[in-house]
């Protein structure tokens, strides 16, 4: 059985900013992410969508509420949850190959899995660039390497924080297809934070629409379209206008919805 179901209940998270004011980043967050699904978190800046991702990764801890992965409490970062940042964060002193091998080496399982590195270099289409340093590659290629690095140790969950935000429009669409291909091949749970409505509809099973001050979920939209999805089909555009409406008038017309 494939694992990787996440359950988030009653999360509250506050931060103290530089001026010593308390900011409520998340309030009453309830979310169930089924095993093997692809979920997008969407919303304007400051709605806490990245914070949700960091909480799942274990990089931050909630003030109250619980987060579980396969029924187990999430306490600290672990290799069962891969994380991919908006900036590629590849280590500049390692070659692409050694960057991708990092997590295997860190867990001391590199020797028996060395062939996996080549497999993943191949998977993201970077064959021939193994021995380059990150700064020698384009932004898109670095992001591919970063993706390979995040999934090389077979995590149950892949967390993506605006992974394609820094890429140009064409590279981004390309990477979305790559992501879907890998998601199907590897069968893992993926949670992605994005600003891009089209991207969210194109890849996701469910879209979590969030609103800021305090960060909360206003609607969870299930996308019931068959893949591959046509970016300009009528159904696609319908979802698009629905989500845009949610985002634009979220403050006045739409009441917060806490049910799952």
């Amino acid at each position: 059985m494939v694992e990787g179901g996440i359950s988030i209940s009653n999360i509250k998270k506050t931060f103290t900013n530089v001026q010593n004011e308390t900011i409520t980043a998340l309030l009453n967050i309830n979310l169930k992410i089924p095993t093997g699904s692809l979920t997008s978190l969407i919303g304007p800046s400051g709605c806490g969508k990245s914070t949700v991702l960091r909480l799942i990764a274990g990089l931050n801890h909630p003030d109250s509420g619980t987060l579980t992965l396969d029924g187990k409490q999430i306490e600290k970062p672990g290799s069962d949850r891969g994380f991919m940042f908006q900036q590629h964060t590849l280590f500049p002193w390692l070659t692409i190959r050694n960057n991708i091998a990092f997590s295997l080496k860190a867990q001391n399982i590199y020797k028996e899995n060395a062939s996996r590195v080549d497999e993943f270099i191949d998977l993201v289409g970077l064959k021939g660039f193994e021995n380059y340093y990150p700064h020698q590659l384009s932004g898109g290629m670095c992001q591919r390497a970063s993706l390979a690095r995040a999934i090389v140790s077979h995590p149950k969950v892949l967390l993506l924080d605006e992974p394609f935000g820094a890429l140009d429009a064409f590279t981004r669409m390309n990477m979305q297809d790559e992501l879907l291909r890998i998601w199907k091949e590897r069968n893992m749970t993926m949670i992605m934070v994005t600003h891009d409505v089209d991207e969210a509809i194109y890849v996701s099973d469910q879209i979590v629409v969030m609103s800021p001050r305090p960060g909360r979920i206003i609607k969870i939209v299930d996308v019931k379209l068959a893949r591959p999805r046509a970016r300009s089909s009528n159904d696609f555009l319908l979802y698009r206008s629905k989500i845009l409406r949610l985002l634009n008038f979220g403050g006045t017309e739409i009441q917060p919805e806490f049910s799952i």
């Binding site: 949850r81 994380f83 990092f102 997590s103 860190a106 867990q107 140790s153």
Partner: peptide
């Protein structure tokens, strides 16, 4: 952070 998420001690 990224090193931690890759299971590094």
């Amino acid at each position: 952070e990224v090193a931690e998420t890759m299971g590094a001690s």
